[in-house]
């Protein structure tokens, strides 16, 4: 399922972000290229930690340190690619 970046994976990540950050918008509100941090989503460092831990628990992919997290959480597209690359 995570061999390639699919629409399914991206939607799953969006749902995960909404849930982990306790946001009250629909997952589809997050565009594939919407910046996750520092943009309209208004996510902070605690949200970033929540997302990274959920990624680790669900996809077994570690995103450690704030520099790596900033890179991986650029957008859903980048996060999905990061997961796929790590699992190859």
């Amino acid at each position: 399922m995570t061999n390639a970046v699919t629409e399914e994976l991206k939607l799953a990540l969006k749902q995960m972000i909404v849930e982990e950050c306790d946001k009250d918008f629909e997952p589809e509100f997050i565009g594939d290229d919407t910046p996750l941090v520092g943009g309209d989503l208004d996510l902070d460092s605690l949200d970033v930690l929540q997302i990274c831990m959920a990624v680790k628990n669900q996809y077994d992919v570690r995103i450690e340190g704030s520099a790596e997290a900033r890179r991986a959480l650029k957008s859903v597209n980048v996060l999905a690619q990061t997961i796929v690359d790590a699992r190859r």
Partner: peptide
């Protein structure tokens, strides 16, 4: 066997 979620912990 997981870490506590950051949000739960705080």
């Amino acid at each position: 066997g997981e870490m506590p979620k950051p949000l739960h912990f705080v």
